[in-house]
Design a protein around this nucleic acid. Structure first.
Length: 194
DNA sequence: AGCACGATTAACT
DNA sequence: GTTAATCGTGCTC
C-alpha cells in the first residue's frame, strides 16, 4: 500500500499552517530508485517581505526567486560557506514564504544515511537542517525542484498524525542579529513527548 | 571591488 | 561554553 504524496494544495497555504501540519509527515529522497526517508520532527516558518528573519526581506533576488514562485517546490540554499538547507516553498505564487526542515527521524535507507553521517550516533544523523541535507544528499541542484511532479526525486508523503499536545512552539533558531519581534516570534514547531 | 555576515556543525576547553 | 571552518549573497563605496 503506497502512501499518498502531499498534493500542491497542501503547500498552498500560509506558512504557519503548513509548518504545523508537516510534523509527522514523511520526507522522501529518491536516489537511483532507492528511498531515503524520515519523519519530519522539527520545522520553522518564514515568510513575507516584512519578516526580517526571512531571506525574502531583500525582495526578489536571484536567491529568493524560487520563494516567489508557485508552492510545492524546494528552496535549497547554501550558508556558512559549507552547509545546505532544505525548505519547502509555501503559500500562493508571488506570496514569498517557506518552511525550513530542521529535523527528521530516519526511517528508510539507514545504511546510506549512516555512511553519509559516518562517525555520528544515530540520534545525531538528521537532527539539524544541514545534517538532513548531508544525509539525504540534497544540495543546490535540487533548488526549485517540484515536490509534486510525478517524477520528483524529493517529495513528502502522508505520515502519522501528531496531536497538538505533542507539538511545542518556540522562537526560530540562529537569528542572532534579526530585530524583534521577528527574532523571538514562535514560528518554530517541534514534536515532543513521543 | 570590497566587506560583513550567515535559518550550522563538529571539535575543542 | 567557545570557536574555526569556509564562501555565496546582498549591501556599500
Amino acid at each position: 500500500m503506497m502512501a499518498r504524496r502531499l498534493p500542491r494544495d497542501f503547500f498552498n497555504r500560509p506558512a504557519l499552517e503548513v509548518a504545523r501540519d508537516l510534523l509527522g509527515m514523511r520526507l522522501v529522497r529518491l536516489e537511483n530508485g532507492q528511498r531515503l526517508a524520515g519523519t519530519i520532527r522539527e520545522v520553522e516558518a518564514y515568510g513575507g517581505e516584512e519578516d526580517l528573519g526571512c531571506h525574502c526581506r531583500a525582495g526578489r533576488t536571484p536567491r529568493t526567486r524560487v520563494m516567489y514562485g508557485p508552492p510545492g517546490h524546494a528552496y535549497v540554499y547554501f550558508t556558512y560557506g559549507m552547509h545546505w538547507m532544505l525548505n519547502f516553498v509555501v503559500d500562493a505564487e508571488d506570496s514569498p514564504a517557506a518552511v525550513l526542515i530542521r529535523a527528521i527521524a530516519p526511517l528508510e535507507g539507514l545504511d546510506l544515511i549512516a555512511a553519509r553521517r559516518s562517525g555520528q550516533k544515530p540520534e545525531r544523523w538528521t537532527d539539524g537542517p544541514a545534517k538532513i541535507c548531508q544525509a539525504l544528499n540534497i544540495d543546490g541542484s535540487l533548488n526549485g525542484a517540484d515536490l509534486c511532479a510525478p517524477d520528483a526525486v524529493l517529495f513528502v508523503e502522508e505520515g502519522e498524525f501528531i496531536p497538538d499536545i505533542c507539538v511545542t512552539r518556540g522562537p526560530r533558531v540562529g537569528l542572532y542579529s534579526v530585530p524583534e519581534p521577528w527574532k523571538s516570534i514562535p514560528w518554530r514547531f517541534l514534536v515532543t513527548g513521543g
